[in-house]
């Protein structure tokens, strides 16, 4: 499957969209592409990718969100620079969208660009979040996000995790729910996330299947940020 120039990352509130978006933007950069990350989250002013603007800039990834200087405010304002990203055909664009259908609605104003450029619309799913433990609940959310955005989902991201309590069993049980939802939606699971503490050996990775995607966690509370070396804007 050929990835499109624009990847839009949606999902429920707290499903891990920002971690996936930041890591995926870095992955694209590592593969030699020019990457722009658009933080479209105007739902909640905490744990957003714009906190990593300087950190990502050092890696050559531009982040655009709101008017410069107002990044940490809870204002529903978006920067016009987003259009510059969309109009630059040399740029791979990753959208980190706000949670739930209400957050995804913001995409509506960029719809003409999606229509002409094509897009991949991902649904990040963590079935351990309240309200999403059954495939039917996930498909219902998927339909609502499609209705809010007037776009079609193209892939599902399996981000089944219980934070620090995540182990292979929780991943495996969560994966079943995500896979069932993806089947019902008739969509492929494009990525299955894992973090440093899980799935270390090659054999374990093989058992877990294809599309494994390593997540370096950035959206950590202050007591888990010891020597990450990541400078955030707060």
């Amino acid at each position: 499957m050929q990835a499109k120039r624009i990847t839009i990352i949606t999902g429920a509130f707290g499903s891990g969209k920002t971690e996936v978006a930041v890591n995926y933007a870095q992955e694209l950069k590592r593969s030699g592409q020019n990457v722009g990350l658009i933080d479209l989250d105007i739902v909640n002013p905490y744990f957003r990718s714009r906190e990593l603007t300087d950190f990502l800039k050092q890696q050559g990834i531009e982040v655009v969100s709101t008017q410069p200087g107002l990044e940490m405010a809870d204002l529903p304002a978006l920067s016009p620079r987003i259009f510059a990203f969309l109009q630059n055909e040399e740029l791979r664009v990753v959208f980190d969208v706000g949670g739930d259908p209400v957050g995804a609605r913001t995409l509506g104003r960029f719809e003409p660009y999606f229509r002409t450029n094509g897009y991949d619309l991902w649904l990040v799913v963590n079935p351990y979040r309240p309200g999403y433990s059954a495939p039917e609940q996930i498909t219902k959310l998927a339909r609502k996000i499609e209705a809010a955005t007037q776009l079609r989902l193209t892939e599902v991201v399996d981000n089944a995790n219980l934070g620090r309590q995540t182990d292979q069993q929780t991943r495996a049980e969560g994966a079943k729910v995500v896979a069932a939802a993806a089947r019902m939606l008739n969509l492929p699971v494009v990525l299955k996330t894992y973090t440093a503490k899980e799935l270390r050996g090659a054999e374990e990775r093989e058992q877990a299947g294809n599309n494994l995607f390593y997540l370096q966690l950035f959206m950590l509370p202050p007591w888990e940020e010891v020597e990450s070396g990541v400078q955030k804007q707060n």
Binding site: G14, N126, Y128, P130, S133, Q165
Partner: peptide, 15 residues
Amino acid sequence: MERVMMKGNEALAEG
């Protein structure tokens, strides 16, 4: 016993 990932605010509300 259900284990879920919750924000502090959500946990408080459900609690």
